[in-house]
């Protein structure tokens, strides 16, 4: 079985993570129920003639994919695999509103054809003239991890070299507010803003200079009880031959709602390990866990993350093994294990 190397990772988020040196120098504090991503100047990445039809999700996806490929020094990947929980929700809203308001008359197709979940992967393929394997996962908070599972399967089996993998979701203008309304009716609602972003990476079986990290393992699980999560995690580590003492940092997806209990079970187990959280600063959305993937890669690469991300930190430490765990409303659990190569 081949090793799944991470050749590059970039992220557009509500923090300035898509900066020139791809690190966050300073945390921006946010308030309010929703926060947009720090959008780059898209003209630098995408020709104007193509930009005109693109929604934020497509723009973020295309720009992030370009940079990820450039950093990995690849012109055309073998495969393109994306994850998007809500797909192109902005164009979905546009088409739906026009449909209702015009009573099904005078409808133009642009918003409709751009509204599908696979628009981002399709546009990337179109731009790169990439005719290889192309697919899109749309399964809530494991959309990105589902894409990782698929890519890792291909890399490890030697079926593919150089796969572009990304997770992307846009804020839209209306549905996000409805989600907020429902959330506020919960006993213990999500305490972080809703947001958007795009994280793209290149995975490859090729060992070369400048490798960021190794994607050692990724698994998703639909349901498990809070009290079983520790067993699930131990089983995951055991299956992948990693001892819990080897883990240098754990990045958790706490969002302040009642289901944070899952994370608390894990925190109790590791009294000496570094713990990081991120949703307070980059928000909650279906593919926000891809940002944790970016953070994990930063740690392993030896880059410095702002101290605000650390809920517990030991003194000057190097990170060889990083575990990511996320869930949403007690469902869609994912474990990702990153190691130094």
């Amino acid at each position: 079985m081949k090793t799944c190397y991470i050749h590059s990772v970039v992220s557009i988020s509500a923090q300035n993570s898509f900066s020139e040196n791809d690190t966050i120098s300073e945390i921006q504090e946010h308030s309010g129920s929703k926060i947009p991503a720090v959008h780059p100047t898209y003209r630098d990445f995408i020709p104007l003639s193509q930009l005109r039809r693109m929604s934020p999700a497509v723009k973020m996806g295309v720009a992030a994919s370009k940079k990820a490929l450039e950093k990995a020094n690849i012109n055309k990947p073998y495969a393109i695999i994306t994850g998007s929980g809500l797909g192109c929700i902005a164009d979905t809203e546009t088409f739906l509103n026009t449909l209702i308001e015009n009573e099904e008359q005078f409808l133009t197709p642009t918003a409709f054809i751009q509204s599908t979940h696979n628009t981002v992967a399709g546009q990337i393929a179109l731009g790169l003239k990439c005719k290889g394997y192309n697919t899109t996962y749309a399964h809530g908070s494991v959309s990105f991890e589902s894409a990782l599972v698929d890519a890792q399967l291909q890399v490890e089996a030697g079926e593919a070299n150089n796969i572009l993998v990304g997770g992307v979701d846009e804020l839209g203008t209306e549905f996000v507010d409805y989600v907020h309304i429902v959330e506020q009716k919960q006993k213990q609602p999500i305490q972080v803003p809703l947001s958007e972003g795009a994280t793209f990476c290149v995975l490859s079986s090729e060992r070369k200079e400048g490798i960021v990290a190794v994607l050692k393992a990724v698994e998703i699980q639909s349901k498990t009880a809070p009290e079983n999560i520790v067993t699930e995690m131990h089983d995951f580590l055991k299956r992948n031959k990693v001892d819990s003492s080897e883990i240098d940092a754990i990045i958790l997806g706490n969002n302040g709602d009642a289901f944070d209990a899952y994370y608390q079970h894990i925190e109790k187990l590791f009294p000496k390990t570094d713990f990081l959280q991120y949703k307070k600063y980059v928000g909650e959305f279906f593919t926000t866990s891809a940002f944790a993937f970016w953070m994990g890669a930063q740690l392993i690469e030896g880059k410095t993350l702002p101290k605000q991300f650390f809920s517990r930190k030991a003194e000057s430490k190097s990170y060889k093994t990083v575990l990511l765990y996320n869930q949403f409303k007690g469902s869609q659990h994912s474990f990702v294990l990153l190691t130094r190569c």
Partner: peptide, 16 residues
Amino acid sequence: GLDSIDALELIVMLDK
């Protein structure tokens, strides 16, 4: 540099 999707947009514009 318009394409087939733009043509459909223009058809609706003529109608509307």
